[in-house]
Nucleic acid binder design. Structure first.
Length: 232
DNA sequence: GTCCAGGGCCTAC
DNA sequence: GTAGGCCATGGA
């Protein structure tokens, strides 16, 4: 494998290695922002059980969730962990959606992107990463999602931008990739998939398809790891 | 038993 | 601005 030098090469290498991930292909339903909040600090398998519980209770509906008792919602989302916290965040999100957009995600997504971003960030429990995920997969806006996996993988490949500011990372991705929500959605999914399998906090590079072009992967194969690479 | 997952909030410094 | 604790369940 040739040495990777940019985001486009990374995307193509990950796509070749892992294939299309197809996250949230249906995209625009209420389960998307709900899932984006539920998935924080847990696995998607756990989220699906929580979503099933909410669906069974008729709460995958903005007005119904807005009116629901957070304590009852907490029991339904318990499989996804942090139940009290996530129940408050979900009911709060639904209330704001009903109050500000009549419960319509279509109207929310139709807002000017800057306002959409600001509105999402103003919701309790929605930070940068969750807001960007909703904008990318829900509103289908070409927004790169810069998460811990993206940073770790790019750092280990020796491609990280100068400085570590959010803006520098966003510019690093946006400047090298087309403004294409489908491509950026695949890239984020591929980075997560690759990170889970081969680029965790403690490097386990065995079998990593990027090993040949990754300094950490090569050193991992050889044995020792530089401390600054292990700790990224 | 230990680690950590498709984060974000709050507090202290 | 940033480091550290906290939230809680479940799978590896």
């Amino acid at each position: 494998m040739d040495r990777l030098t940019d985001a486009r090469g990374l995307y193509e290498a990950l796509l070749a290695a892992h294939g299309p991930q197809g996250w949230w292909p249906g995209g625009r339903g209420f389960s998307l922002p709900v899932g984006a909040i539920l998935v924080q600090h847990t696995t998607w398998a756990s989220v699906e059980r929580a979503l099933d519980n909410l669906r069974g209770a008729g709460l995958l509906d903005p007005p119904a969730l807005a009116a629901a008792d957070p304590a009852a919602v907490a029991e339904l989302v318990r499989p996804a962990g942090l139940p009290r916290q996530k129940a408050e965040r979900l009911t709060g999100f639904a209330r704001a959606l009903v109050e500000d957009f009549g419960g319509s995600l279509e109207l929310l997504y139709a807002a000017e992107p800057h306002h959409l971003h600001a509105w999402l960030l103003a919701r309790r429990g929605i930070g940068r990463e969750t807001a960007e995920s909703v904008m990318l997969y829900g509103a289908r806006l070409p927004v790169p999602v810069v998460d811990a996996y993206a940073r770790r993988i790019v750092r280990r490949l020796g491609l990280a931008p100068d400085g570590d500011a959010d803006a520098a990372w966003r510019e690093w991705f946006a400047g090298q990739l087309p403004a294409d929500a489908t491509l950026l959605g695949e890239l984020h999914a591929l980075l997560v998939e690759h990170g889970k399998r081969f680029c965790r906090v403690a490097p386990r590079c065995t079998g990593c398809p990027l090993r040949a072009c990754c300094p950490v992967g090569r050193q991992r194969t050889a044995g020792a790891l530089p401390a600054e690479e292990v700790s990224v």
